[in-house]
Amino acid sequence: MTENIFLITLVVLAIVALNTKKLRRAIVYLGVFSLVSSFVYLLYGAPDVAIAEAIIGSTITTVLYLVALRKYQVFSIYYANSASNQNNRYLKNSSNFLKNLETFLIQREMEPQIIYSGESIETILDQEKFDLAIHHADQDIWIYGCVEDYQIDAVEEYLQANYGDLNIHLIRCAEGEDNEA
């Protein structure tokens, strides 16, 4: 009976780890999966394998994955460049704005990935997964970010310190909700 509970738990943890949207949570679920599997090894009479799985699989591997994930953070930035704004004089300065933002993110040990899109900002907000979505509208710059992303606070401080003279509107959207401002 105990074996069946542990085996069902392993299947549930594997499914949860595969279907999790956040990579950090998936790593934690896999660490718990490894710990439960070490108990299964112990139940089947393999204490040496159980100890190795508990130490290597559950602890060391989980810590290494979390450290590696911390070091490598891709930060996706969508830049909406709709056809109606093609001749906007503010867009001519946008490449400098984006380069400075990219430099700031690199200094924070992140890998910015800037995606220039011809789609409307509404389409990007509805259909794309992003860390930041940037849109110019006349003299205003609209920046959309996820409420749960702790990097948004640092980006907001950076923008206020370096671009306080521009009309920048930072909108924090909850993940998974309709992101209309």
Rank of each mutant, 00 (worst) to 15 (best):
L18G: 13
N19Y: 05
L23Y: 08
R24D: 06
R24E: 12
R25W: 14
V28F: 07
V28M: 05
Y29L: 12
G31I: 04
G31Y: 01
V32M: 08
V32Y: 02
S34Y: 06
L35R: 04
V36W: 02
V36L: 02
S37Y: 09
S37D: 00
S37N: 06
S38F: 05
S38R: 03
F39W: 13
V40T: 03
Y41H: 10
Y44W: 08
G45W: 07
A46T: 02
P47L: 08
D48Y: 13
V49H: 01
V49M: 15
A50V: 12
I51G: 02
E53K: 14
E53N: 09
A54F: 13
A54C: 10
A54D: 04
A54S: 13
I55A: 15
I55G: 14
I56A: 11
I56S: 08
I56G: 02
G57A: 12
S58F: 12
S58Q: 04
T59L: 15
T59Y: 11
T59H: 01
T59G: 15
I60T: 12
I60G: 05
T62P: 02
T62A: 14
V63M: 09
V63P: 00
V63I: 15
L64I: 15
Y65D: 00
Y65H: 04
L66D: 05
V67P: 00
V67R: 07
A68L: 13
L69I: 07
L69R: 06
K71F: 11
Q73K: 13
Q73H: 10
V74C: 00
V74W: 00
F75D: 03
S76V: 14
I77T: 12
Y78A: 05
Y78C: 05
A80W: 10
N81I: 09
N81Q: 09
S82K: 03
S82A: 06
A83G: 01
A83D: 13
S84P: 01
N85D: 08
N85H: 03
N87A: 08
N87Y: 12
N87V: 01
N88L: 03
N88A: 02
R89D: 11
Y90T: 00
Y90R: 05
L91V: 10
L91K: 13
K92I: 11
K92Q: 07
N93S: 14
N96P: 00
N96W: 04
F97Y: 14
F97L: 14
N100A: 05
L101H: 10
E102I: 01
E102C: 11
T103G: 09
F104E: 14
F104P: 11
L105G: 08
L105P: 08
L105R: 08
Q107I: 05
R108V: 02
E109I: 03
M110E: 05
E111L: 13
E111F: 13
P112N: 11
P112E: 11
Q113F: 06
I114K: 03
I114N: 05
I115W: 07
I115S: 06
Y116P: 01
Y116S: 06
Y116M: 10
Y116Q: 08
S117A: 12
G118N: 15
G118W: 04
G118R: 13
